[in-house]
Design a protein around this nucleic acid. Structure first.
Lengths: 159, 159
DNA sequence: ACTGAAAATAAATCGCA
DNA sequence: TGCGATTTATTTTCAGT
């Protein structure tokens, strides 16, 4: 018997660490240590704790979505014919395989989905609709809302 | 006279680099070099080119949104009283200061906005509405759609 | 828990093919 | 564009407070 898995949760210093790494995920640990006013060892230990505790899920390069995928975002409200396990599972699976789909949320109430789909232009969206979305079994109805400008996009919540 | 600013754009190797860094943004350059089958020097040069060309916009730690901000996402369609510079500018400015707002898109047509707001619960959303959103000058109408599950969220486009 | 120093790795730079 | 070697910086580990 050893350790009552010290579930303390992030303190103020941990939050500062997360904040800094959310802005620059490749910052040198030595630089991070300096900025939070601790030496290397405890800094790195805190980072590892945050990673293991799942507060930091990973580190990613942010790619230019507009340049690599397209400048047009379409919010798509999808209604399924029913909410059977099979229909839902197949839908979510196919969606995850479509590179145009950047995010997908299951909505309350009507139990349908809202997707954000990124395409180069409206032609590209039409292709996505006809070649991908309408071909997924169980899709009953689709309503599209087109965005032309991304005003704000936070990769991580503000602390 | 020297160089017709060689605007070549990413080749297959560059795309592989972006793909790998989008999955692990803190990977050692030496490991990246191994995976793409080049030595360190050209690998690092390519990475720097991708950064300078804006294909890689930066590196960030992914924080657990559900744990740090909340499990409830609300899509909010906001209509402004008009599209005057002043109203638009103030709206976008205030939105950017609100930590609950994770993203904001300017929509075509009616020229209103779609936001994704993250809150711990519906009470938190009510607070956001009354303390923040409805207090921004120029906000005429609000329509909320509540999500309870994030099915998919890509930090970067698939290559 | 934190510090500081030593040992092991990794990153940046340079001359060259 | 690419390679390999050198210099410089960073990360990791460990003994001490």
């Amino acid at each position: 018997m050893v350790n009552f898995t010290n579930e303390a949760g992030p303190d103020k210093t941990d939050r500062k660490i997360m904040q800094l790494l959310a802005r620059d995920g490749r910052m040198a640990w030595s630089e991070l240590a300096e900025k939070i006013g601790l030496s290397l060892t405890p800094t790195l230990r805190r980072v590892r704790q945050l990673e293991e505790g799942g507060y930091i899920k990973g580190y990613v390069a942010q790619l230019d979505e507009g340049r690599l995928a397209g400048k047009v975002s379409v919010f798509v409200a999808v209604t399924l014919v029913n909410q059977s396990e099979e229909v839902i599972q197949r839908f979510e699976e196919q969606i995850a395989l479509s590179p145009e789909v950047m995010s997908c949320f299951l909505m309350t109430g009507d139990a349908d989905y809202t997707l954000r789909v990124v395409v180069p232009d409206l032609d590209g969206y039409q292709h996505f609709l006809t070649r991908t979305l309408t071909r997924i079994p169980g899709v009953a109805h689709i309503k599209s809302s087109i965005a032309l400008k991304q005003v704000l996009m936070r990769p991580s919540p503000l602390l």
